[in-house]
C-alpha cells in the first residue's frame, strides 16, 4: 500500500465536492424540520432534481439552467407531499416514504434515454493569482460556483433563522403550531413554503450530483444521499453551521475510502464502502445518547399533524 499517493490538498478539494449535494439537501430539510414538518422524501426529491437538471442541461447546453430546473422540479414534487400532509392531513412519515419511492421510479422513467450521455461541463472558477497560490489557492479559490453557493446558503439560513422576523415565525410554527395559530400566524402557508424550499434545495443537490459530481445520469444514482442528509439534520441538532461539519465529515470519509482503495489497502473494498455509513450511524448513536440536550433543540411540533381548531 502506498499512502503517499494520497495528496491532502486533493483530498480536501474532492471532499468538498463530495459533500455539497448532501449539504444542500440537509440545509433544505433543516428548514422544513424547523417549521415542524418531517419530510422523509429527500431521496426522492434529490433524484428528481438529478434527472430533471440533467435533462435540462443536456437539452439547453447550459448547466446553470440545469441547476435551476432541477431546483424547480424538486420543489414541484415536494408539493405532492405538502398537499397530502398539510391539506389532506396524511401521515408525514408514510407520505415522505411514498415520495421517495415515487421519485426513484419517476426518475428512472424520465432518465431512460439519457443514460451514458455527458452533460455540458461546469468548470471551476479561476481567479488569476489567487487560485494559483500553493495549497490555499486550490482549497479556498479553486472550486466551482455551486460550492460557494452552498456555503453562502448555510450562512443565509443561519441568518434567516436567528436574526429575522420571518425566521422567528418559522421556528415558532415548528415549536408549537397551536400557539402560533392562536397568535394569528398562517401555519399551513408557512409550512408549504418551507416544504417547497426544502424540495428546491434537495433538487439542487441532486442536480449537482448528476451535473458535477459524477457527472452522468444513472438510475438510482443518489444511492442513499437523501437519507444521509436526513441523518445530518439530526446530527447538526438543527443548526446550519453544524450541518456543514456533518456533511463534510461524511464526504471526507467517502473520499478517504476511495483514496484508500486506490492506494491498495488490503481490505475488501466492500468494507471500505461501508465506512461512511457506519461512521454516520456511530455519530448518531453518540448524539442520541444525550437525550436531554437533543430534545432542547428539536422542534417540539416535529412530525405532528396540525388541525386548525377554529
Amino acid at each position: 500500500m502506498d499512502l503517499s499517493s494520497i495528496s491532502p490538498v486533493t483530498l480536501i478539494v474532492s471532499l468538498m465536492a463530495a459533500s455539497t449535494p448532501i449539504l444542500l439537501a440537509a440545509l433544505g430539510e433543516l428548514v422544513v424540520e424547523k417549521s415542524g414538518v418531517l419530510n422523509l422524501g429527500v431521496e426522492g426529491m434529490m433524484i428528481i432534481g438529478a434527472v430533471c437538471g440533467f435533462i435540462a442541461a443536456v437539452t439547453t447546453g447550459s448547466p446553470w439552467l440545469g441547476f435551476l430546473f432541477g431546483a424547480i422540479c424538486g420543489a414541484a414534487v415536494s408539493m405532492i407531499f405538502a398537499v397530502l400532509t398539510q391539506y389532506l392531513m396524511a401521515n408525514q412519515v408514510a407520505s415522505g416514504l411514498g415520495l421517495t419511492m415515487f421519485g426513484l421510479g419517476l426518475a428512472a422513467l424520465l432518465g431512460h434515454s439519457y443514460t451514458g450521455i455527458n452533460p455540458p461541463s461546469f468548470s471551476q472558477i479561476h481567479i488569476p493569482v489567487l487560485s494559483d497560490l500553493p495549497v490555499v489557492g486550490r482549497i479556498v479559490f479553486g472550486h466551482d460556483p455551486m460550492i460557494y453557493f452552498s456555503l453562502a446558503l448555510t450562512f443565509g439560513i443561519w441568518y434567516f433563522l436567528t436574526r429575522t422576523r420571518g425566521g422567528l415565525v418559522l421556528r415558532a410554527v415548528g415549536e408549537s403550531h397551536d400557539a402560533a395559530h392562536a397568535l394569528g400566524y398562517k401555519v399551513i402557508r408557512i409550512r408549504m413554503l418551507a416544504i417547497a424550499f426544502g424540495g428546491a434545495c434537495a433538487g439542487l443537490g441532486g442536480a449537482y450530483l448528476s451535473l458535477v459530481r459524477v457527472p452522468q445520469w444513472a438510475e438510482g444514482m443518489t444511492a442513499g444521499a437523501g437519507w444521509i442528509a436526513l441523518a445530518i439534520v439530526v446530527f447538526a441538532s438543527w443548526k446550519p453551521g453544524r450541518a456543514i461539519i456533518g456533511a463534510y465529515l461524511f464526504g471526507g470519509v467517502t473520499v478517504l475510502q476511495l483514496n484508500l482503495q486506490a492506494a491498495g489497502l488490503a481490505i475488501s473494498p466492500a468494507y471500505l464502502s461501508m465506512t461512511p455509513y457506519l461512521a454516520t450511524i456511530i455519530v448518531l448513536v453518540i448524539m442520541a445518547s444525550d437525550k436531554k440536550r437533543q430534545s432542547l433543540n428539536a422542534p417540539a411540533s416535529l412530525g405532528k399533524t396540525f388541525f386548525a381548531s377554529t
Binding site: R165, L168, V169, R171, A172, E175, S176, D178, A179, A180, A182, L183, G184, Y185, L296, N297, A300
Partner: peptide, 27 residues
C-alpha cells in the same frame, strides 16, 4: 389587536424553546 383588543390565553400561547423577548415579538 389593531382595534385594541388583547388576549391572555387559558393555555398559554407561548413557545418554550424561545426567549421571553422572542415570544413577545411574535405576539
Amino acid at each position: 389587536r389593531a382595534a385594541g383588543v388583547a388576549m391572555v390565553f387559558q393555555h398559554f400561547s407561548l413557545f418554550e424553546a424561545l426567549s421571553v423577548a422572542e415570544n413577545i415579538a411574535l405576539g
